[in-house]
């Protein structure tokens, strides 16, 4: 039956009206309903709540009943004492994360691809995935312990001539610890998509290259990397789209008064004001600002990629 449907569609899809299309693929459309509902209910409907960023939201008045205040909360944030600092920290952490964290899974996938011993390959893969499955709270507990004065990592570092201090309460090290542990936790997991992309490359290309006398490095450079470059660009655009939105939970679990200076980011600030201080409108305004900037960067990155490389996300 499926075959027939496809044929019909190909033959006179132009004349099929929507009703017929719906009828013919009704099972597919039925399957789509839950997903559609999910997006409408949990992604699009709550978006209307953004209006509270422009209102003086009072729990008792509700979203519609609260007074309009225009850009009051945006002004408050931009002129506030913590604006430059949280913005700087957010961008710094994000940029570090992209510069150091983005290439690593790609390199890892390339290396893994060269391993011929299947068993060894599987073990390496599994071991590198594991940290991804540990809960963030547990990870942060481990980080705090390992980097404290008697922690495992601190002791290791002192062997190499680093000072014996509590690294978690020193503002100079926060970003390195944050980004470093993030890479450790995620690089195995993030490499999956590249490994999948590599396995999709036509084996004939490699055979042809071998006949031409290409060595391993050549093959990687001329076949594997071009073969997954689309995936890399796609992932980079997506990553750039969240430059300003670093998850707050890890920062909140790791920072303390000693590291606010380098650790306090926009999302942790939103958390403190919104949840801690019950200032919903203000934190919505800050969150909206963050999303708008992300959106602009995403569009820009997409545009640049379209121009240079000819392919893009949309």
């Amino acid at each position: 039956m499926t075959k027939k449907t496809v044929q019909q569609k190909n033959n006179n899809s132009f004349f099929l009206n929507v009703k017929k299309e719906l009828y013919n693929n009704r099972y597919l459309y039925i399957l789509m309903i839950p997903v559609l509902l999910y997006y409408i209910l949990f992604c699009y409907a709550p978006m209307t709540g953004i209006v509270i960023a422009f209102k003086d939201y009072q729990i008792s008045e509700g979203i519609l009943g609260s007074k309009w205040v225009g850009l009051k909360y945006f002004k408050e944030f931009f002129s506030g004492m913590f604006f430059t600092r949280t913005l700087r920290n957010t961008i710094m952490i994000s940029v570090y994360d992209i510069v150091f964290g983005f290439p690593l899974p790609v390199i890892f996938a390339l290396l893994l691809n060269e391993i011929n011993n299947l068993k060894y390959k599987k073990i390496v893969q599994t071991v590198t995935y594991l940290p991804h499955f540990i809960s963030m709270v547990v990870i942060c507990g481990m980080i705090v312990d390992f980097f404290s004065r008697d922690g495992v990592i601190t002791r290791l570092l002192t062997l190499f001539g680093f000072e014996n201090i509590n690294y978690m309460s020193d503002a100079r090290y926060f970003r390195s610890i944050y980004v470093g542990t993030g890479i450790w936790q995620g690089f195995g997991w993030n490499s999956i998509i590249y490994i999948a992309a590599i396995s999709g490359i036509d084996q004939q290309l490699y055979e042809a290259a071998e006949i031409d006398g290409a060595k391993k490095i050549r093959k990687v450079w001329h076949i594997t990397i071009p073969g997954i470059s689309d995936t890399i660009i796609l992932m980079l655009i997506l990553r750039l789209g969240s430059v300003l939105s670093i998850g707050a939970e890890k920062v909140i679990l790791l920072y303390n008064a000693g590291t606010y200076e380098t650790a306090d980011i926009i999302s942790s600030y939103v958390y403190r004001t919104g949840i801690g201080g019950a200032r919903y409108s203000y934190s919505s305004a800050v969150g909206l600002f963050q999303s708008v900037v992300n959106f602009i960067i995403l569009i820009a990155a997409n545009g640049i990629s379209k121009k240079i490389k000819g392919n893009s996300l949309f």
Partner: peptide, 20 residues
Amino acid sequence: DEFSALNIEICTYLDEMIFK
């Protein structure tokens, strides 16, 4: 609301500076 705004900013600044 004004108090809540002041409270958060002042407490954050204070915690940090006192530590330093």
